[in-house]
Computed example of a mutant assay.
Amino acid sequence: MPAQRSPQTAQTARPAPLPAGTRLLHIGPHKTGTTSIQGALFGAKETMPAYGVEFPAASRHPMQAVLAACSRGGMIGDTTPTERHWQQFVEQVAAGGRKTSVISSEFFADAPDDATIERVVEQLGGARVHVLVTLRPLAKIMPSQWQQYVQNGLRMGYEEWLEHMLRKAPYEKPNPSFWRRHRHDRLVERWVRVVGADRVTVVVVDDRDREGLMRTFEALLGLPDKLLQPVPDTANRSLTLAETEMLRNLNKEFRGNGLPDELYSKLIRNGAVMHMKNACSPTSRDVKISTPGWAVEAAAGIGAEMAERITAMGVRVLGDPALLSAVPKPAASDGGEEPRMAPEVAAQALYGALAAVAEAGAGRPGARGVHQTSSRELVRVLGHRCLKRLRRH
Score class of each variant (00 low, 15 high):
1 M>G: 15
7 P>C: 03
34 T>C: 07
41 L>V: 08
52 G>D: 02
55 F>P: 04
57 A>L: 06
58 A>Q: 14
67 L>M: 12
69 A>E: 01
70 C>A: 14
72 R>I: 02
77 G>W: 01
81 P>H: 06
85 H>T: 07
87 Q>N: 07
89 F>L: 08
93 V>T: 13
96 G>K: 03
97 G>E: 10
98 R>W: 07
102 V>A: 01
103 I>P: 05
105 S>R: 06
107 F>C: 08
112 P>S: 08
116 T>S: 10
126 G>M: 09
126 G>P: 13
128 R>Q: 13
129 V>L: 02
131 V>T: 11
133 V>S: 05
135 L>H: 09
139 A>C: 05
142 M>I: 14
142 M>L: 15
147 Q>D: 06
159 E>S: 04
161 W>E: 02
162 L>E: 08
162 L>W: 02
176 P>Q: 10
176 P>M: 08
185 D>A: 10
191 W>V: 09
193 R>E: 13
198 D>E: 15
200 V>M: 03
203 V>H: 14
207 D>F: 00
209 D>H: 05
210 R>E: 15
215 R>Q: 13
217 F>D: 11
226 K>H: 15
227 L>Q: 12
233 D>G: 07
234 T>E: 14
257 N>C: 12
260 P>V: 00
264 Y>T: 01
267 L>G: 09
269 R>T: 12
274 M>H: 14
279 A>H: 01
282 P>S: 04
287 V>H: 06
288 K>H: 13
294 W>E: 14
295 A>H: 04
297 E>G: 01
305 E>V: 03
308 E>T: 02
309 R>Q: 15
310 I>E: 08
311 T>L: 02
312 A>I: 00
316 R>N: 15
327 V>F: 01
329 K>G: 07
335 G>N: 13
344 E>R: 09
344 E>Q: 12
351 Y>T: 09
352 G>W: 10
365 P>N: 04
366 G>T: 03
368 R>C: 09
368 R>P: 01
371 H>Y: 11
379 V>G: 11
380 R>L: 13
384 H>D: 14
391 R>Q: 12
393 H>W: 11
